[in-house]
Design a protein around this nucleic acid. Sequence first.
DNA 1: CACTTGATGGTATGTTTGTACCACGAAAAA
DNA 2: TTTTTCGTGGTACAAACATACCATCAAGTG
Lengths: 218, 218
Amino acid sequence: MPKLADHEERRAHIVDALLRTAASSGLHAVTMRSVAIEAGVSVRLVQYYFDTKEQLLLAALTRLAARMGERVRDRVRTAGASAQGSSAQGSSASATAAPSPRDIVEAVLLEAVPTDEEGRTFHLVYTEYAVLSVTDPALAGQPFLAGPAEMEELLAGQLAAAQQAGDADPRLDARQEAVMLMAASAGLGLSVLLGQRSADAAIKVLRYHLGRVFSPPA
Amino acid sequence: MPKLADHEERRAHIVDALLRTAASSGLHAVTMRSVAIEAGVSVRLVQYYFDTKEQLLLAALTRLAARMGERVRDRVRTAGASAQGSSAQGSSASATAAPSPRDIVEAVLLEAVPTDEEGRTFHLVYTEYAVLSVTDPALAGQPFLAGPAEMEELLAGQLAAAQQAGDADPRLDARQEAVMLMAASAGLGLSVLLGQRSADAAIKVLRYHLGRVFSPPA
DNA sequence: CACTTGATGGTATGTTTGTACCACGAAAAA
DNA sequence: TTTTTCGTGGTACAAACATACCATCAAGTG
């Protein structure tokens, strides 16, 4: 074997270029040439590492879904550690305390609201893929089915835990509330992407609603 | 003037063909040819009535936004008239009674959840346009800003009315609740489009949450 | 009856796209 | 050292696209 080229690294580099161009010009405007230019390689190279455009798009989607998982897991891991804003709520006073269910739920939901430019482009491309997957059979729905279902499960579990700890009204239906939270989070994130709302406003609404859910039983 | 051709009717016909092809193959796959074929006219005709493709897409968007307004208004007008499901809630017993605020809110929110095929294609194309408008400067955000803002206003008003009538907890923040309901409705509708949930499940969640909002003050 | 003008069809054109093909260098294997 | 094979570049090509151009027919107008 001659030249030694780290395939995984090269593929990642090209896929990142794809995601960058998709973020700036839209996923529909992504072409082999634009990706090659953005990646600083020849079109032939893109062909070499991803035979066809469809495979390239698919690889990018896979990477996107994986990154979504990482992002959420990161948020869960560092939940409750950062001093988030000024709204006074009665849990997790110490910075190093174990995150409460509410902290975890809030962290997961806030991921859907893009604040910085990176989050914005990430969620934009992710949403473009999701919508495209409805009409394009090649982009089968796996990433858009497994991921949310898993998160819904997580939220329902945390809600149930909060209920048993007395931090949430036990009369709530944890599963329905979880679905509701997922939908609200997605909807708010989308509205921010569309410019209907600022990220701050979306976060405020989300926190307001969490205050309604995580309240001592009447 | 020679042949007498109703421009508005022809334009509507072509735009409908656009929307149909966009629904089945995706908005990105819409071409002058596919629209012409679907409409049963020559490409030249499409060019004649909409000079450029961009204008055609814009006209379709305008029509889509208008139809969205009609759909919501229709729902509001006939709110409370149909016997909706079996969930027992304590308002609007008679079929011809004036719709309660809850009926109106529910009607508006349910519009975002596609049930039949027509609603599905409608909301799919609408969503494709919305996402496209983020990266395509030609599709300025007007329709996606004015419409939702107006609906948010309506919901906030109805919520306030329900609060004054004693049908909702006066401690709720009507505006934040309205934003929340809009986001949840959009998120649920999107999840149905993506196949994450059935329309029935989404409606159940929405009704469940409305039951939480429209409840006599504690 | 001429004639203008709106509505329509067909076709050409230049560009962009995805992909296939050919070539070359360099490193490991023989 | 020869030879294979991986990585890379350039280019060619057929298809599709949006759009411009040319031609034609019919219906009102003078």
